[in-house]
Design a protein around this nucleic acid. Structure first.
Lengths: 182, 182
DNA sequence: CTACCATGTGCAACAAGTTGCATATAGGAG
DNA sequence: CTCCTATATGCAACTTGTTGCACATGGTAG
């Protein structure tokens, strides 16, 4: 049911089409929740069926009609209950770490090739986060609670990514950064 | 297919029954991969069907026979290929962070109640990791590569958990740790 | 001129993960 | 005496997530 609440939470901020929700997940909330557009359209249809959201059709020429979803009262209520209930920690399933357990089969070069790719990725992500932090969250102390909490979600993204980068440095320190054969 | 490789990677270390694999995932590899016993038995049957693992039946009185799974040659080969290929970053889906996006519906007390539970959990986990670090990885520099990589998986667990705890402190600093009404 | 990309919706098939149940025995706590 | 835990296996139904495809058009890059 968690995807359902992710959609409701996003619609709580503002009404949106399935397409826009897909983009929000990919961009602003990539750190928090991920879902493909297929999954989102499917779940929106179910949530509509259950009366948690309402649709407003907006006609367009050429393109399909926009179906703008709004949070219904019952949706807001259910979201509120979910938010105030306890959620267990998500299970981690990380292929990169898994490979360390069969590390003897992992060639030195390939290991560092993959690590480098990840590092580039993390670096880019970190810069994007830091930019948002600079642009939107300068005076955090004075912000209303709602924005403080959004800021904390961003902070989590920053700290998680920094932590991965620090780990990558440890890998280099312990296993040697430069392969002989290149 | 990733669960399949998780099983092969664990069997690469040593042969095991489905039950033992379940425990390994829950205990030693909790940081890396999670799977229920139902999922594991199902996937082991498929892997056996595909000839990636072999079974050795060990009779027991009273209890069902132990089915000890071994990595077959083809399984080792496929694991090797997978390990040396590129794996994309896993998608994050974190209910705790999601709730921050509907934070207006989240009561101050409930938020900190949940945060405290998480903190206790992280603290415990961190202590378990640190204990393993002390007991098994004192002279990391001198260890063979295989153990270095295992150590790095553990380090990742430590760093990730520390990062969460640091984040929790930021939450307290920004949103006030002590609710008035208690 | 053609190919890709963005917008916008969605179905169908499959793979992966969860939840509830079932069987069978031995040992310890209350 | 009963309940819980550990060992050890597994089925069935369901939910969630992935992958591939489809339609429809306007703009931009080569």
């Amino acid at each position: 049911m968690a995807l359902r609440y992710a959609l409701l939470a996003s619609l709580y901020e503002s009404p949106a089409t399935g397409y826009e929700l897909t983009r929000r997940f990919r961009e602003r909330m990539g750190n928090v929740w991920n879902a493909s557009h297929q999954q989102i359209y499917r779940e929106l249809a179910k949530a509509l069926d259950d009366g948690l959201v309402k649709v407003e059709l907006v006609e367009q020429s050429g393109k399909p009609d926009r179906k703008v979803y709004h949070l219904a009262d019952s949706g807001r209520a259910e979201l509120g209950e979910w938010v105030n209930g306890f959620s267990p920690r998500p299970a981690t399933r990380d292929p990169l770490l898994l490979k360390l357990f069969a590390g003897d089969l992992w060639s030195h070069d390939r290991l560092f090739e993959e690590l480098s790719r990840y590092e580039l990725d993390w670096q880019e992500e970190l810069e994007r986060y830091r930019e948002i932090e600079r642009d939107y969250f300068q005076d955090v102390q004075t912000l209303p609670r709602h924005y403080k909490l959004q800021y904390l979600a961003l902070r989590r993204g920053i700290m998680a990514t920094e932590s991965w980068l620090a780990w990558a440095r440890e890998v280099r320190d312990l296993c040697g950064a430069s392969p002989e054969g290149s």
